[in-house]
Design a binder for these strands. Structure first.
Lengths: 233, 233
DNA sequence: ATCATCCTATGATCTAGATCAATTCCAATT
DNA sequence: AATTGGAATTGATCTAGATCATAGGATGAT
């Protein structure tokens, strides 16, 4: 069940919009506020969209973590990307009305909602925003490419290290706290399903990182001791 | 070495533009023609862009095949996607001035050239085109996701089958000939580097397909006998 | 307190695909 | 016709990571 209520913060002052996606001028933000239809709250570990479902609203994460994924026959799951505060959940809805993937929350989530067709018009009319959409598309493409290289040509050890480093870097860029120990709500199964591994093997890789004194991840708490070692991968 | 000369076909009549990317109205095509700065010819197996290089022109493949890739330390290579006639080579240039990947031709290639900044303005001014850019971005994202699932959660046999089926489907959509045997310029190393395999193993998978009577790929000639078998993967 | 559940840890195997090492097969020169 | 060099084929191993099996904490519900 989702909860609707008035959001106390205006888009123009939103700490998320400052660091992410629709970074743009004051007047655009004001226009955006008019567009926002409200906000929603989702509990942790809840499916927010199911692949193929019709979605009439676009969401933007205000607070909390989520991930995009697809299910395959045989119970296999591939996580496509992780979503942090400030990330738009479903840009594809600009051009398609059914999402080609599912979305699930990791933590409890607050998300701003936008009407899909209003949003599409808005993007069409505001050059700034359209350009930002392109930027966001291109950077999504670039990081998808990078993940592809991970799965195709890097060892499990490299993959896990790089994923964690990438997420910590994103957290910093968004102004989320990253001092030890930091909040990091991925379990071994999430890491495994994102990187094409078994959760058992992901666990072994994490153990190795722990023993090497590089990092320690346990039950949602991450301690990062040797960032240089990760960057070297 | 690249060759420049007058292109005999106008954009308005271009068979490529009909099926791909900038499918749009007559007047847009005419405007596009004004934008086109010429065309170029590249021989087969030539590096067209090197990662990180500044590129002042955008290319759109008129004829021939190419692929995007990245090199890693240790001689590892990951192919990110294959480019067919009608595909834009470097959309990211809309927002960045250095390509985040390299491009290499498989066959000899004819490509239309567009000035980068003119093109960006053009996109900003034409809603139609901007929307098409979004569509193209989203579909690129979707197929990147699909490839990610291949590498993360599917067997070598499934990957190879699906890659070949995907390419044949794209060839059909573009009106390229697909009757047996068809022109199909990927070697085992290309298949391997796209799917995170060894070329030796890719060869073994192809042998299995051949023995099962599903398909046969040899030296640039593909015969597809049992498409249903591929679709079942 | 007790129980059920989920996440994590660890050990013992197994296997898909990698790596190493020759050969054979072509197409393109000379 | 001979030569050369890249691509495909084949066989023999090896290994990173999967699979199977079990058990140990946490956490939350009753």
């Amino acid at each position: 069940m989702t909860v609707m209520s008035a959001l106390p913060i205006s888009c123009a002052q939103c700490p998320r919009l400052k660091t992410a996606f629709y970074r743009s001028e004051h007047e655009t933000l004001v226009a955006m506020e008019q567009l926002r239809s409200g906000h929603r709250h989702f509990p942790a570990k809840r499916t927010i969209y199911r692949e193929g479902e019709i979605a009439s609203e676009m969401l933007m994460i205000f607070d909390g973590w989520a991930f995009r994924y697809k299910l395959l026959p045989g119970g296999r799951r591939q996580i496509l990307s992780f979503l942090l505060p400030g990330d738009p959940i479903c840009l594809p809805l600009l051009t398609v009305d059914r999402l080609p993937f599912s979305v699930q929350s990791l933590t409890s989530i607050t998300a701003c909602t936008f009407d899909r067709s209003c949003f599409a018009n808005f993007v069409a009319e505001h050059r700034q925003i359209a350009f930002q959409a392109d930027v966001s598309c291109v950077s999504a493409q670039t990081s998808a490419d990078e993940r592809l290289i991970d799965l195709g040509r890097r060892s499990a050890y490299e993959r896990v290290g790089r994923l964690i480093l990438e997420l910590v870097t994103r957290m910093e860029a968004k102004g989320l706290p990253t001092s030890n120990p930091m909040f990091f709500p991925l379990g071994q199964t999430h890491i495994a399903d994102a990187l094409g591994l078994t959760s058992i093997h992901a666990g072994r890789v994490l153990r190795r990182f722990r023993r090497e004194g590089v990092l320690s991840l346990h039950r949602g708490r991450l301690e990062l001791f040797d960032r240089a070692a990760l960057r070297r991968l």
